[in-house]
């Protein structure tokens, strides 16, 4: 972690500083780093850019997951058989080379790790940014380029995080869903979305997810340093399209089911 607070004194902090040194303000050899050198991956992780890089890479994993998850779940519109077969296939994925659910757990582990990295990095970077401006502006800021999505990343992130827990309790563990039947996603989904508050929560969370992706899917190109005039103008386009697809796809389910447009 950075140690902004410790290095902010601009006076020469060397022990052998003489009178002339003390006159120096924020000059002279830099204050020696207080951090010990650590092995490569940790060293990289320590830097803000390293964390942003980790967020981008984990973000790509999560984007892939969100997309695949949506494609799988949209099968609900094709009927009970389709989605339940798909759910069963996920467990048998990789058979016979791998035992049942091993590949699924492998994928889940990757997604959990990506989540974890994404959240820890975001938390640490937020703290770093807070420390970089302890005294806020006392007058109203007038943002020019920062949009709603970019400025609410940490809030949409928190909403998504809370939603994921609820979503797991609702449709994976079933602890929040009294009608939960393991292995029957089709019915579980309808039980859930038949309750309007639950559907609203899903809709709100997925809109937040879309907003989060709108900035994140663009921002990751910058963080990874993928910058080329040939495709730069497509980066925004990609992010908007991705966010749009996710919002439309994921919101369609609770919306159509809860309004009764689609029935069992």
């Amino acid at each position: 972690m950075t140690r902004l607070d410790e290095t902010l004194s601009t006076e020469d902090q060397r022990e052998d500083a003489d009178a002339a040194d003390r006159l120096l303000r924020s000059t002279g050899p830099p204050v020696p780093p207080t951090k010990r050198a650590v092995p490569f991956p940790l060293q990289f992780w320590r830097s803000g850019i390293g964390k942003k890089w980790a967020m981008a890479v984990s973000g790509i994993v999560l984007l892939g997951y969100v997309f695949a998850h949506m494609v799988g779940n949209l099968k609900v519109f094709l009927g009970r058989h389709q989605i339940n077969t798909y759910g069963a296939w996920l467990r048998t994925l990789g058979e016979p080379a791998f035992p049942r659910t091993v590949v699924l757990w492998g994928l889940r582990t990757a997604v959990i790790a990506a989540f974890f990295i994404h959240i820890v990095a975001a938390y640490q970077l937020t703290r770093m940014n807070r420390r970089a401006r302890p005294v806020r502006y006392q007058s109203k800021r007038d943002y020019v380029a920062a949009n709603y999505a970019s400025r609410t990343m940490r809030w949409t992130g928190v909403i998504i995080g809370l939603f994921v827990i609820f979503h797991l309790m609702d449709l994976t563990w079933g602890t929040a869903n009294p009608h939960f039947v393991r292995g029957d996603p089709y019915d579980n989904l309808f039980y859930s979305f038949d309750q309007v508050p639950v559907a609203v929560a899903y809709i709100v969370a997925n809109i937040a997810l879309g907003i989060h992706i709108f900035h994140g899917a663009w921002s990751m190109f910058q963080s990874l340093g993928w910058n080329n005039p040939r495709y730069n103008r497509w980066r925004r386009w990609f992010a908007s399209a991705f966010a749009g697809v996710i919002i439309v796809g994921n919101v369609s389910m609770p919306l159509l089911i809860t309004t009764g447009a689609v029935t069992r």
């Binding site: 950075t2 140690r3 902004l4 290095t7 902010l8 830099p30 780093p33 830097s47 803000g48 850019i49 964390k51 942003k52 970077l125 770093m128 940014n129 420390r131 970089a132 401006r133 943002y143 020019v144 380029a145 920062a146 949009n147 970019s150 400025r151 990343m153 900035h215 663009w218 921002s219 910058q222 963080s223």
Partner: peptide, 19 residues
């Protein structure tokens, strides 16, 4: 970059700096 991060925050690609 290491020196910069001792003093300043991190980039979240708002684009305010460019503007």
């Amino acid at each position: 970059v290491d020196e910069m991060e001792r003093w300043f925050g991190s980039c979240t690609n708002h684009g305010e700096c460019e503007a």
